[in-house]
Computed example of a mutant assay.
Amino acid sequence: MRIRALIALLLAFAFVLLPHAPSGAQDTQTRTITFATLAPPGSLIMRGLDAWNREIRRRTEGSLQLRFYSGGVQGDEPEVIRKIRSGRLDAGGVTSTGLAQIHRPALVFQLPGTFLRYEQVEAARAALAPEIEQGMIGQGFRMLGWADVGSAHLFSNREIHTPTDLSASRFWVRSDDVILPVLFDFVRSNPVSLSVPEVLGGLQTGRIDTFLAPPAVAVALQWSAHATHMGDTAVAILVGGSVISERTFQSLTPAQQQVLTETGAQFHGLARRNASRAEQESIDAMVRRGMQITRATPADVTAWRAVGRQVRDRVASRIADPALVARAAAFGEQ
């Protein structure tokens, strides 16, 4: 009896020492999604992403969160997409360059010489995005929300009114860009291919002196400090959004998937609604610092749109089925 009592006592003592999972520990364990972006720390984009993350944590009671790698520390967008494909990252915020690495028809929302107002892009996206998103799922990615990166303006160190004025420019072309290099089939210039993280250095050394960018991006990445002139007319509206690996998305619980989807739509929609205001605030800030605005005449606008249509006709077959391109382009005529 004494031996049995001693064994029972030892077993009970060992049981007390064993690490015990508290009730519901699996439910409170936090799942972290790694998310890469070129947006600099402290920028308006990062503040929006941080707010999105707080809402995800709140609605999942801390069981799901995003971990951001900002400022391009994970590489330019093609590298980020490769890392998501290989499982080294879960998600990312990308522009059309990154979207084209996933599913090239996403570029129909950024056809050159087509969309000059946010309302046109929004209408095209409302009609065509479900079809585009299904194609992205087929490539192993899921769209969490569409963004308007901003209307692209021409920045330079001289007045540029028409495409022919670009002949003396050292024009930045983004590495892996599908559309912009075609411009130089029709316009004389000196294009220089650089990744986004290389642009600031290229401007500082004079390797490039002309670039297309949304004003808010030019300010956030400090590019605008190396330009003296900005065209007042948008050449195109740049689009993008947040994507996640379909594999990662399917590994979440149904409740987590719902929260991620709903909050993604909510916060990206808010960002799109605020894009125009943020753009104007950036332009005002640049003007206060001495930026000169080049005013386009109606003839200038006509010249840019004509070249844009030439580029569109040349690249359309590389982007998507001609019928899809035509459907998207129709919204730019409204």
Rank of each mutant, 00 (worst) to 15 (best):
V182W: 11
M1S: 15
R104V: 12
Q257V: 00
R273F: 12
M286A: 14
D76N: 12
V149A: 15
P130N: 12
G48K: 08
P105W: 07
D321E: 14
D27A: 15
M230F: 05
A320Y: 00
A152C: 09
R327I: 06
G48P: 04
F13W: 15
A330E: 03
V325N: 09
V235R: 15
K83N: 02
P19A: 10
A12E: 06
S63K: 01
S276I: 04
Q74Y: 11
M291G: 05
Y118A: 10
A278S: 12
N190V: 09
H161C: 13
A303V: 15
Q266L: 09
H153D: 02
S276G: 08
V192N: 00
D300S: 12
Q101Y: 08
V307F: 07
R314L: 10
S156E: 11
A127I: 09
F109C: 01
V307P: 01
G87S: 06
Q222W: 00
G290F: 09
T210P: 03
H161A: 13
R272C: 01
T248M: 10
V182C: 07
L144R: 03
D177R: 11
I84L: 06
A21T: 11
H226D: 02
R67S: 13
R170A: 07
A265Q: 06
F184S: 06
L212C: 00
F13V: 15
I244V: 01
N274D: 14
G92R: 02
L38E: 09
L180M: 15
R327M: 06
R88I: 10
Q310A: 05
G24L: 08
L17D: 08
P254L: 10
L203K: 00
R104M: 14
Q222D: 14
Q29F: 11
Q258W: 11
G62M: 12
D313A: 13
G71E: 02
D165T: 05
A124E: 01
E61C: 04
I3D: 09
G201N: 13
V259L: 11
E198M: 07
A320K: 03
L99E: 13
Y118F: 11
M136K: 07
S245D: 09
F249R: 08
R289I: 05
R272A: 01
S151D: 07
S169N: 05
H229G: 11
R47S: 10
I179V: 15
P78W: 05
A234M: 05
G92W: 12
T263L: 13
P163Y: 13
A100D: 01
L212W: 06
A255G: 02
L144K: 09
L324Q: 02
G62A: 04
P298L: 13
A285E: 14
R188F: 03
V192H: 01
A51W: 01
T297R: 13
F109H: 04
L116F: 15
A216W: 02
